[in-house]
Simulated assay, not measured.
Amino acid sequence: MTITKNRAFLKWAGGKYGLIEDINRVLPSSDRLIEPFVGAGSVFLNSDFEEYLLNDVNADLINLYKLLQTNADDYIKAASEFFTPNYNDKDRYYDIRAKFNASSDILERAIYFLYMNRHGYNGLCRYNLKGGYNVPFGRYKKPYFPEKELWFFAEKAQKATFTNVCFRETFKQAKSGDVIYCDPPYAPLSPTASFTSYSGQGFKLKDQEDLANLAEHSSNAGVPVVISNHDLDLTRHLYKQANLKEIKVKRTISQKAGKRTKVGELLALY
């Protein structure tokens, strides 16, 4: 079955749009796909399961997804008003970022979240230790309003359940007939290259170890697991109980195209 590729409506560091074919080739058939680290949702958007359990530790992300699932029309209309030339302004961006950090209103935060994702630097999603969104202004000529992508997500979200818990809790929800795909914050390529603060909580070595152990236990219980990560000595050690598939992927975290070199990536199959 050929699946038309669909882009996520969010820009996302480490998004899996470019690896969809590789991932779909190794995902076992099942009734339900579970994603403990759904991120921008490229695997969800480009796979064909009867049901989805989609989780992320980032509460802003999950609240936005729930709004699209239940009230897409009002959300998309309100969000579109922030994609005009008047809002593509450095001072306006920092004003909205400050309002976002001060707000506890779910709809307001969701509207600002999409605005900042498309107007902020390089599509990053990053919070400081106090939970404040701190991505600088991106200086784009004309930020794209992803209306088509938003509507596609909203339609497909009718097959999904969204949760905002630790990945360990998500694994506990797995049962026979499920398959789990994990796209965790990657192990750093060097001690200074770690990018793990998109939720404000970080993802440590102990978390990487726990994930590998959970994947092994889940597989032993009859629920297959696929994990993406960098191809490193560390990850090969962590995933030593899995079948490993090596792939190459062009990273897009660097704003300068000339610096977007291909690095090794692993798909660990439990």
Results as ranks from 00 to 15, higher is better:
K240D: 15
L54K: 00
R7K: 12
S47P: 05
E265N: 09
D74E: 10
G131M: 03
N117S: 13
T170K: 05
G131W: 00
K172M: 15
L238K: 05
V57F: 10
K77S: 12
G258P: 14
T170V: 05
V165H: 12
E147W: 08
F49K: 12
I96Y: 05
A257F: 06
F162K: 06
K204Y: 08
A154I: 04
S228E: 03
Y75D: 14
K148W: 07
L266R: 01
F82E: 14
S197F: 12
Y87Q: 12
T192W: 01
V249E: 11
A160C: 07
V43G: 00
R236W: 14
F9G: 02
P136H: 15
Y186A: 01
Q69K: 05
L107H: 03
Y270C: 02
W12G: 01
A72G: 04
D89Q: 11
Q241P: 09
Y65I: 00
T2I: 13
K142S: 15
I76F: 13
W151R: 11
H217D: 09
V223P: 08
Y112P: 09
G258Q: 15
L232H: 12
K250A: 13
D56L: 08
L124M: 10
F153P: 08
K148F: 07
Q208P: 03
S190W: 00
A215D: 01
D73P: 14
S254K: 14
K156E: 01
G177R: 05
S254Q: 13
F37W: 06
A72C: 04
A154S: 10
Q201T: 09
L244W: 04
S47M: 00
Y144K: 09
F167C: 11
T70S: 11
N164K: 04
Y87E: 14
Y127F: 14
S29G: 06
K142N: 15
T163K: 01
I247N: 10
Q158G: 09
P136W: 15
A8F: 03
S42K: 00
D233H: 12
Y239P: 02
R236Q: 12
L64H: 01
Y239W: 10
I62L: 00
Y198V: 07
I62P: 05
K142P: 15
D74S: 15
E21I: 08
K248Y: 14
F171R: 00
F44I: 01
L205P: 08
G138Y: 13
Q241H: 10
G258M: 15
P224D: 03
A187P: 03
Q255Y: 08
L27Q: 05
R251N: 09
Y75R: 08
N46E: 04
P136I: 11
L205S: 07
Y198T: 07
N101E: 10
F152L: 09
C182Q: 01
L129F: 11
V226N: 02
L189T: 04
K90Y: 07
R251D: 05
K66A: 00
D22V: 11
L267A: 02
N58C: 10
Y87H: 15
W151C: 10
Y239L: 04
V165G: 00
E50T: 09
F137A: 14
Y75N: 13
I253D: 05
L205W: 06
V179E: 03
A40N: 08
Y121C: 13
Y87W: 13
Q208V: 03
R109H: 13
A193E: 02
G264K: 07
F171D: 04
A187I: 02
G132D: 15
F113N: 11
H237A: 14
K262T: 15
A268L: 03
V223S: 07
P146N: 03
